[in-house]
Design a protein around this nucleic acid. Structure first.
Lengths: 66, 66
DNA sequence: TGTAAATGTTAAATATTTATTACAAAATGT
DNA sequence: ACATTTTGTAATAAATATTTAACATTTACA
């Protein structure tokens, strides 16, 4: 799973902490998610996509074989 | 979180077991997910959306307050 | 250059998802 | 009505996500 959280954060000028607060998760959740260290729940994906006004598919991409 | 997995399964004429095999999870995962008992990972959501040719947003909906 | 803000990283604890097995209940088709 | 398939449900264990806290590193900027 790849994601474009960092890019969307930049577009919307939000820090990891800003984003974390907006979707009610810890900053580390944002940080490690951004780093691709785990796959978030669909609830988080939907919340972020909604906030950034993009689709879940634009924000998260399965990689080959996944 | 609500979802339309059961409806999409009906449209595509797949049993829970069929769907489970196609996206490489257990049948119980499909069953309990369909029943709304938990929120799946974004990876599963993307795989199902891709299989059904719908967006993740069409397949899963956050409920009020979520 | 110094200071604060932002990010990266780690470790431990908790919560949640997923698999497995098994069985009961319901639906389907003949 | 009977047999078969499909679905619901439950218990347990494993894997994975998420939180919290603490500290190190990097970045921004006065």
């Amino acid at each position: 799973m790849k994601n474009k959280i960092k890019i969307q954060r930049a577009i919307h000028n939000l820090t990891q902490d800003d984003l974390a607060r907006k979707i009610s998760v810890s900053r580390q959740t944002i940080n490690t998610m951004e780093a691709g260290k785990y796959v978030p729940s669909t609830a988080l994906a939907l919340k972020m996509a909604r906030l950034f006004e993009v689709s879940v598919e634009e924000l998260f991409q399965l990689e080959e074989g996944e």
